[in-house]
Design a protein around this nucleic acid. Sequence first.
DNA 1: AAATAATGTGTGTAATTTACACATTCTAAA
DNA 2: TTTAGAATGTGTAAATTACACACATTATTT
Lengths: 247, 247
Amino acid sequence: MTQKMKMAATVEKTLKGLQTEVQSTNKMAISVDCVIFGFDENTLKVLLIRSDLKKYKGKWTLLGDLVKPDEDLDAAAYRVLKQRTGMKDVYLEQVKTFGEVGRHPAGRVVTVAYCSLINIQNHQLQILDNEIHWHSVDSLKDKELGFDHERIFDTCYRWLQKRVQEHPLGFNLLPKKFSLRELQNLYEAILSKKLDRRNFRKKFFSMDFLVDTGEEERDVPHRPGKLYKFDFEKYEKKKKVWGGIDF
Amino acid sequence: MTQKMKMAATVEKTLKGLQTEVQSTNKMAISVDCVIFGFDENTLKVLLIRSDLKKYKGKWTLLGDLVKPDEDLDAAAYRVLKQRTGMKDVYLEQVKTFGEVGRHPAGRVVTVAYCSLINIQNHQLQILDNEIHWHSVDSLKDKELGFDHERIFDTCYRWLQKRVQEHPLGFNLLPKKFSLRELQNLYEAILSKKLDRRNFRKKFFSMDFLVDTGEEERDVPHRPGKLYKFDFEKYEKKKKVWGGIDF
DNA sequence: AAATAATGTGTGTAATTTACACATTCTAAA
DNA sequence: TTTAGAATGTGTAAATTACACACATTATTT
């Protein structure tokens, strides 16, 4: 028996153990999986890691981890984000829970899917693990993800598409200062369709969350656009006044 | 590095995505809790059971149960419904998962909240357990629910209020044949506000899911209204054409 | 200096939502 | 039998919102 085989055997034993243990006790493993969106080069991207798990070796998967016994679900999701990207204070929201019996090869694992939006240009962003890469959302059509992560991703992506039309979440994906063209590019990328420049502008100004910084774009080969920042405080206040917009 | 350590490292890597140390303490109980809505006497109601758990003895709680090791989440929710109401083929949808560490006195229990709509007049409905009762949603304001079920209920109720404005789910709460007045009463109860009779009528007819049964109300002390039924098939077809309306 | 390619600001039209009025049909009381 | 009452059924006009589209402005590039 080679070294490698022994290791493989140990791995399988561990996985089996997990399975029997879960089944015998009526308890099960719970994980969080984060769909982490970013926006770069006018492209919507998602952060994925190459799986090491035998069955899905080499396949791309979402970033996730088991929830610890003394850890809240949200906290687990934030922990994954912090560990994997170095960022905290990021936008994060629970989307849906996936718990089909056969969804994980290691046994019963119920996973809570979270959606996260981060700014790729943020200097705090640190992707240390070289098995972790950004993938354009478009390119995922041609990739096969591990586990049921394709379905989870689809769910979260559709969730995002709907969500950004009800709440101005997109700002979480942009740098502090941005031009209206950048904002529109973002929305076009998320919604995967062209928008009318003038109506888009009108709509966002009418929301009244954009603050003119007085600055302008630089080093662009055309008339520079004004740079704006998003008034997060104003938005939070309005959200409270609106009351239960979300459920 | 010892042999054992190497193996451990491999296991760890293999379970990447899961937590580093695979131990039984990493597993927890998972339950489903169903917010079962009904509509009777022009009032929106919810089905609750008196808790027998020591800490919440006598308090009203949602209907729920632990998820079995070989049972899908949705299946568990359907099982609860069948066991508690005798009904199957009911409307059911996952809403949100609650997993705070201290939410259950018996230890770590993560619960997946489901929202269900049933027709109280349905002859299949059988509430056998005499600890289970219908409560008007309004009256819940003055009741203290067990566990964190107040929060779960609030979430599901707000979810419902938003949901019925995007999808005609209300029909699941009504008998097969109903008048437009009954339908409006239902929506007014759910949304907790008065609606204009004529605009309401216009809106629903324009949706084109109402089928005239040719029958009329009977034994009403005024001009009888026409009775309609909901075209579930047509709705399902349209939903497919719409594509990903929900996330 | 002219051509080019963005930004910035409207304006008019269609579609949807909202507000509101009147005739019809049945019950129940006089 | 007649009449008052109450709810059903059908429209129509105003107001708001979404959509389509045009033109002047400001910078860069040739």
